[in-house]
């Protein structure tokens, strides 16, 4: 059941993203920023936790989930450490993903060469 819900919820979130792309015709960077910031606030207001309960990875894998993790980290750390926690919590919680992207990105750029015509 988790698998089905992951597929369906993840698919729906991607469809919403596609509608944004085709309607506004903006660079993908706008979409990514929109997703992360939306996810952060949905996370703060506790709405995204409910979506994760239903959708599991269908909600955590999309970038909205990245935003949710940012919010979760910031709130948890702020409760424990105050202002410094608010500053570092989100970064700490999402550090594995960011570091992985950077490090794998660098390794790939060493190993591979850019490919041309699509």
């Amino acid at each position: 059941m988790n698998y089905v819900m992951s597929f369906v919820v993840g698919g729906i979130i991607c469809v919403l993203g596609q509608i944004v792309i085709d309607t506004f015709k903006k660079n993908n960077a706008y979409l990514l920023v929109l997703l992360v910031v939306t996810g952060t606030f949905l996370g703060y207001f506790g709405i995204y936790d409910k979506i994760i309960e239903i959708g599991h990875s269908g909600a955590t894998v999309p970038l909205l989930g990245f935003g949710h993790a940012l919010a979760e980290g910031a709130v948890e750390e702020a409760a424990a450490k105050g202002f410094m926690g608010a500053l570092s919590g989100g970064v700490k919680k999402t550090a594995p993903g960011v570091a992985a992207a950077l490090i794998f990105g660098y390794i790939v750029s060493i190993v591979f060469n850019p490919k041309g015509n699509k």
Binding site: N28, P114, K115, K118
Partner: peptide
């Protein structure tokens, strides 16, 4: 954009 950047 970079050519390896996915998109339509």
């Amino acid at each position: 954009l970079p050519l390896e950047m996915g998109g339509q």
